[in-house]
Design a protein around this nucleic acid. Structure first.
Length: 215
DNA sequence: AAGCTAGACAACCGCCTATAA
DNA sequence: CTTATAGGCGGTTGTCTAGCT
């Protein structure tokens, strides 16, 4: 049986009040970040240390940007997610003023749906079976790879996503849709076969930092 | 006006890792 | 080397609110 991170008896588990925020900010101004578990004792806050840390990191930190995500931030999140998967803290680290929680929430509530509506599997960053098939048919009909560059299998415009961004990298999804059952779409779609979420498309030994530098 | 629903966001939970003892 | 502890992270849940019926 795992020991709880703190004694939850008597702990406040509701939203933070302005008074609690102020006490936490005062403490951190005075003592700096860290030693989170001392904070409840030192301040009398009925919160566990982890909760104090989370409140500071996600809400009280002075360098937080807050507000809507800009188009370039969205683009970067999509690219980084394609590279790193659900490594929210790493993704947030590349977005000044944004927190991992914020990025994660934004992804789950906005971006994953947006990609899905564009026919892209948000988990694997691959085109859906149907859209991939359209591309394959176009190629089989004699379109060149340069035609592929201009092929827009789903409505792409700057209100949705920059055409030069994540959509460039998507390949046909084989996640349960049988795209590879009777043909090898990856060989037909070399330009799209860049699954950044898996290391297979990069040289062995490629580190996360190496991937980041590709951006 | 009241009830319901979905979306957005804040917060918690539990696991993992690093590190000190 | 082992164990305990604290911090960090991602997944999940809870709460609030706006829009709709």
């Amino acid at each position: 049986m795992r020991k709880p991170c703190c004694d939850k008896e008597g702990m406040n588990k509701r939203s933070w009040s302005p008074q609690e925020d102020q006490e936490l900010m005062d403490y951190i101004k005075k003592h700096g970040e860290g030693h989170w578990r001392n904070i409840p004792k030192a301040t009398g806050l009925l919160r566990c240390g982890k909760s104090c840390r989370l409140r500071w990191v996600n809400y009280l930190r002075p360098d937080l940007k807050r507000g809507d995500f800009a188009e370039d931030e969205e683009d970067l999140i999509i690219r980084l997610h394609a590279l790193l998967g659900n490594r929210w803290s790493l993704i947030a680290g590349r977005l000044p003023g944004r927190t991992d929680n914020e990025v994660k929430n934004y992804w789950n509530s906005h971006l994953s749906k947006k990609l899905a509506s564009m026919g892209i599997d948000p988990k694997h960053h691959r085109l859906s079976h149907h859209l991939a098939r359209n591309l394959i048919n176009s190629i089989a009909a004699g379109e060149t790879s340069s035609a592929l560059e201009h092929h827009q299998p789903f409505p792409l415009d700057h209100d949705q996503i920059k055409s030069s961004s994540a959509s460039d990298h998507y390949q046909a999804s084989d996640a349960g849709d049988g795209i590879n059952d009777d043909d090898d779409s990856s060989s037909l779609l070399p330009d799209l076969n860049v699954d950044m979420a898996s290391d297979s498309s990069l040289p062995s030994g490629t580190t996360t930092e190496d991937k980041m530098s590709l951006l």
